[in-house]
Design a binder for these strands. Structure first.
Length: 586
RNA sequence: GCCUCGGUAGCUCAGGGGAUAGAGCAGCCGCCUCCUAAGCGGCAGGUCGCAGGUUCGAAUCCUGCCCGGGGCGCCA
């Protein structure tokens, strides 16, 4: 509808230009917005005020001239000039009739743009290190990314969802060592567990897997393991040096083959755990992209070669640097350390290149806010690789803090006393978790109120919306009980009977759904959709209290049922995009 | 110090050039002989952090300052 009105205004301006009323050179950046106040119609256009100065005319005078030239449309009832020069458009009953008809006809597809009409998007999200269970911070990235992906798809973009698996590097080595130490413990060795190793109970679970597969084959005496190692932190030493030495010791004692075996079991177990966790949360990926594969496939070498060829690499102090500061970053970045190992950033560059080569549209990164420093360096990398940096889109998700009984939950990864995503899902349920995670702007810190999320009352927005859907279903159940049937054809013919205020409000709101979706997609902002659904639910509840649905009047009853069904459909469609269920009853 | 996100009602947050700044919760007052009261209606509540600037018009854009979260590694 918005686009339709923009088109009408464009035509009117065209006539005025042709007739020389306004200059040919006047730009036509037409803005049409849904109004906040119904007294201002349904859509408002500010074009007269924008053009008034260059047209050398008073805004209201220009508005009048535009109004006179706007072509007639069956979907527009009337246009008014109001305030400082707004053109207020009132949609017609015919338009509202079309809206309900379209919703009922398209069903689950209502609001969806034709598939694949927009450029593809490769979205990468979560990508947490596979060294432990996902925690509540990852949960927000997961809920946000999955919702954005669904919304983009609905808006007409082909979407690929990827999880980048950091299966290479020191953290993974620490996990492997942690597992092996627990394995030794299970085998009866009394061996000290380092401060910096992974403390969680899941490490025992993995150790048990190692034991069931390898028996005592990997066992070594405790003194062999710890003898001559630098002191750990609580022994007045350095925790980092201690764990690094322990990694080297582990490799030496086990040998490459056995070490890799432990490493592989740990990695596989963690990925499987994360995959399952996210799957239960309704978050699915098309590809789990291995960092290691960048090494084995030669992609990393090729990416570096590309930078080298374009003159962006330089050797300094034995390390290879990427001259990022010449491409907009605030400092240069090491890609190969003086010990010959490539950095994490080097992998990022290779992955970036691979993404841009595979996807002709945008590479969308969902980062935690703590990663914002990566933005300029990845853009620099894109430039250095000869790629268009504007094809990269970064969305930073701010932190989530849990509250219980008004108290902030303290979390520390170190001690293992963090709340996992699984804990959260168990406590509040998947629906509440998904909704709460996206109900605030992702750019906003999130205070996650556990008590509110668990509440079965209207104060809980998830229940409030779901209840609206369930209420509608119960009306239809009641209808069936009474032996009556819903006749949508009668309802459509009688749609003009829906003239009560709450009905009019709801009709208009439902018609805005496609625009809301488009807006949410463009802004990568699922909270826009979440708020909209809450509005729909509120308007429905208001209507429900205002009117009786199952009335004797066939026309009126069916018209109302059409609107109720359309409302349920929009709620279902919208909730589906943010991963929340629409229950039949509650 | 630099980068980044934020500061809007008692609380949590929408609105991000337009018309009297909105919602939920909390508070107060009402509404079930009737399809789910897990609901609805109403009242009250605001120097949009501060100061300048741009504009016909600023909560919104620009600059500076104040306050808070986060980040600034040859870590991953």
């Amino acid at each position: 509808m918005r686009a339709h009105i923009e088109e009408l205004v464009t035509q009117a301006l065209g006539y005025l230009k042709r007739d020389g009323v306004i200059g040919d050179d006047i730009g036509t950046a037409i803005q049409v917005e849904p109004t906040k106040d119904r007294a201002h119609g349904d859509y408002a256009c500010n074009i007269a005020m924008v053009l008034a100065k260059t047209a050398k005319m008073a805004p209201t005078e220009l508005a009048k001239k535009i109004l006179d030239r706007v072509p007639a449309s069956k979907r527009v009832k009337s246009i008014e000039i109001a305030g400082p020069g707004f053109l207020n458009f009132f949609v017609s009953g015919h338009h509202l009739k079309i809206v309900v008809r379209e919703i009922l006809a398209k069903g689950a597809d209502y609001g969806r743009a034709p598939a694949n009409t927009l450029p593809p998007v490769l979205i990468e999200f979560v990508s947490a290190n596979p060294t432990g269970p996902l925690h509540v911070g990852h949960g927000r990235g997961a809920a946000y990314g999955a919702s954005v992906a669904s919304i983009l798809e609905a808006a007409g973009h082909p979407v690929e969802r990827e999880y980048y698996v950091n299966d290479d590097g020191r953290q993974m080595d620490i996990l492997a060592v942690s597992v092996w130490l627990r394995y030794l413990e299970l085998a009866g060795e009394r061996v000290r567990f380092p401060d910096n190793a992974y403390q969680g109970d899941y490490v025992y679970d993995i150790a048990r897997q190692v034991r069931s597969r390898h028996g005592d084959d990997l066992r070594h005496h405790a003194h062999e393991v710890t003898e001559g190692l630098p002191a750990d932190a609580d022994q007045e030493g350095d925790a980092e040096a201690h764990i690094d030495a322990l990694i080297a010791r582990t490799r030496a004692l086990l040998g490459d083959e056995q070490y890799e075996a432990v490493f592989a079991i740990a990695l596989e177990a963690m990925i499987e755990d994360i995959r399952q966790d996210l799957g239960e949360f309704g978050v699915h990926f098309d590809r789990w992209y291995s960092e290691r594969s960048l090494h084995t496939s030669g992609a990393l070498e090729q990416a570096l070669a590309k930078l080298e060829a374009k003159g962006w690499l330089e050797t300094r102090n034995g390390a290879v640097w990427f001259k990022a500061s010449e491409l907009g970053d605030d400092k240069d970045r090491v890609v190969v350390r003086d010990n010959g190992r490539s950095t994490y950033f080097a992998s990022d560059v290779a992955y970036l290149l691979d993404k841009l080569e595979r996807c002709s549209g945008q590479a969308l990164y969902i980062f935690g806010a703590d990663h914002h420093g990566y933005v300029p360096r990845l853009k620099a990398a894109a430039k250095g690789l000869g790629q268009d940096p504007d094809r990269l889109d970064f969305q930073l998700v701010q932190f989530a803090v849990l509250y219980r009984e008004g108290q902030k939950l303290q979390m520390s990864t170190r001690s293992g006393e963090f709340v996992t995503l699984r804990d959260l899902r168990d406590e509040v349920g998947n629906d509440a978790a998904r909704y709460f995670y996206v109900m605030r702007s992702h750019e906003q810190h999130l205070d996650f109120d556990l008590d509110l999320a668990k509440s079965n009352a209207n104060e809980n927005p998830v229940f409030y919306i779901q209840y609206a859907h369930a209420r509608i279903q119960s009306i239809f159940a009641k209808l069936e009980e009474s032996g009556q049937r819903h006749n949508p054809a009668i309802g459509e013919a009688a749609i003009s009977r829906l003239d009560a205020e709450p009905e009019q409000v709801l009709l208009r709101q439902l018609g805005r759904y496609p625009e809301v979706l488009e807006n949410a997609a463009q802004r990568r902002a699922p909270h826009v959709l979440a708020h909209y659904l809450h509005d729909i639910a509120a308007e429905f509840h208001s209507w429900y209290n205002h009117s009786q649905f199952l009335v004797d009047d066939d026309d009126l009853r069916n018209a109302r049922l059409n609107l109720a069904q359309a409302t349920a459909q929009v709620l279902r469609n919208g909730l589906g995009l943010i991963g929340v269920s629409a229950p039949e009853s509650m």
